[in-house]
Nucleic acid binder design. Structure first.
Length: 450
RNA sequence: GUGGUUGUAGCUCAGCUGGUUAGAGCAUCGGUUUGUGGUAUCGAGGGUCGUGGGUUCGAACCCCAUCAUCCACCCCA
């Protein structure tokens, strides 16, 4: 006999878990729809060439590659095979891969369907993605992303909308202690100019992005090694404090950065985002150490976390000016965000949202004998005709076994039927949580559940 | 890819410095005389102790290897 097991970093989801995951998806989907996004889906697998080179050097290693069908070894690169050179061998034995995120497949979709798309195009997409990472807390090899993107407009109204979407989604989920972090790629560039950083821009952003993990000592050490003078590091330190996103903060920024084109654009754009909506209720901060997604992001960048959750970010996003360019469609700007469904679930679970057993309103008929079971089947037929979810316990078992079943499966309502009920064409409706019970005619039962 | 952790029943684990037929709770199934459950009680089934070697009279326990797991780094949702 073989041992039942699952690949590393993947999970099964029970009915109870699925119901809750679907609730989260519904919350996010409803907000997306409220802001005018339409759904699309794309295949789990893409051409490997669509995916490679889009996520940085590390990203390529984390792609799941799909082995070609048939006698793939016969067509393999003989030299690479002889040299045991894996990376060189891959292109000759694999031309498909599992998608790594939903943004790149979306860019591919836009380019391929450009003649059927009216811009600006607003789509949402809720599907699994796969990464060949080492699993750990809050990190899986198969996980779901909930994306919304607007493509084909540079308007900062979109950024303002996403900020509102963040607030609405987290509020609807009951996660009050969220924090949206905002930064602008151009501001980061202006910071680099202000402190006259001579090394590569990536080195700088990678270093400051680790601030909340390795602290100032670590960042100072890393930047010193890159040749940044101590007084410049102090200057940087003065610039990086997290501040509320407000007119005052932007004025402060105006004063502390050297004049340059990046600064003007960055500040102008942040100002506009600020104008397009009331953010007074939104927990949003400007965080200049936020540097994620540098590969294709060019404007505003977002990240959302749940404070004290022990899990990193639950959402990331930003504006990209030329993601479709690699597929041949130039000058199309887009902006989007992505929620991590699995991390949101983990946080809700750890905050006690799921401590109570999941219950549902499907009605379970429990019966005392075969005659009563037949009566229950007739009742169930009537209820289902009125779109009321109904189940008749299938076996002839003692009533306490049937109640056990009801409790374990999360049935909140049970209809008990026996000789008495058959005579009066009624049921005993029982609330399994309170134990309360009342005799109802089938007609009254239907109106109660309609 | 790097470092650490843990592998004993379906799940969570106990098993004293190596010593007879390896235990508990939960879960599953059945009973506590059959029209009312969830917390009670009795009982049953279920394990070649991750796998392969080695040391020993004797290994769940010690040694080596291997696989898996979880956690951290890198990076990310």
């Amino acid at each position: 006999m073989q041992k039942a097991s699952l690949p590393k970093g993947t999970r099964d989801f029970s009915p109870e878990v699925m119901n809750r995951r679907n609730q989260i998806i519904d919350v996010i989907k409803d907000v997306y729809v409220l802001y005018g996004f339409d759904p699309i889906e794309t295949p789990a697998m893409e051409q490997l060439s669509t995916l490679t080179g889009k996520y940085g050097a590390e990203g390529d290693n984390l792609l799941f590659k799909i082995l070609n069908s048939g006698d793939y070894l016969n067509k393999a690169d003989g030299q690479a095979l002889a040299d045991k050179n894996s990376s060189q061998l891959v292109p000759s034995i694999s031309d498909k891969g599992l998608r790594y995120d939903l943004t790149v497949p979306f860019a591919r979709y836009v380019v391929q369907n450009q003649h059927n798309i009216t811009f600006p195009f607003k789509r949402y997409q809720i599907q699994p993605v796969w990464r060949a990472d080492r699993p750990q807390k809050g990190r899986y090899r198969e996980f779901w992303q909930c994306d919304a993107d607007v493509i084909g407009t540079k308007s900062l109204v979109c950024e303002a909308d996403f900020i509102q979407i963040y607030h609405q989604v987290f509020t609807n989920l009951g996660l009050k202690d969220y924090q949206v972090r905002l930064n602008h790629r151009k501001i980061l560039e202006a910071i680099a100019k202000t402190i006259e950083f001579k090394g590569s821009f990536t080195d700088l952003t990678v270093a400051i992005d680790k601030l909340d993990k390795i602290g100032w000592d670590g960042v100072t050490k890393e930047l010193s090694e890159k040749g940044l003078a101590p007084n410049k590091i102090d200057h940087l330190k003065a610039l990086l404090h997290i501040k509320p996103f407000s007119v005052e903060t932007i004025d402060e920024l105006q004063a502390s950065l050297v004049d340059c084109e990046e600064k003007s654009i960055g500040i102008e754009e942040l100002n506009q985002v600020l104008q397009y909506g009331d953010i007074s209720n939104v927990n949003i901060v400007l965080d200049f150490s936020l540097a994620r997604g540098l590969d294709y992001y060019t404007g505003c960048i977002f990240e959302a976390i749940i404070l004290d959750s022990g899990i990193g970010s639950v959402s990331g996003g930003g504006r990209y000016d030329d993601l479709t360019g690699v597929f041949g469609l130039k000058n199309v700007s887009g902006v989007g965000i992505s929620f991590g469904l699995d991390r949101i679930y983990d946080i809700l679970a750890s905050q006690g949202f799921y401590d109570e057993k999941y219950t549902h309103n499907t009605l379970l008929f429990c019966h005392f004998d075969a005659v009563a079971r037949k009566y229950a089947l007739a009742c169930a037929h009537e209820l289902r005709a009125k779109q009321i979810p109904t189940v008749v316990y299938p076996d002839l078992k003692k009533i306490n076994k049937q109640f056990d079943y009801a409790n374990k499966c999360g049935y909140k309502w049970v209809a008990v039927v026996g000789d008495n009920e058959i005579e009066t064409e009624s049921v005993q409706l029982k609330n399994m949580q309170t134990g309360e019970q009342q005799k109802l005619s089938v007609t009254d039962l239907i109106s109660k559940f309609s």
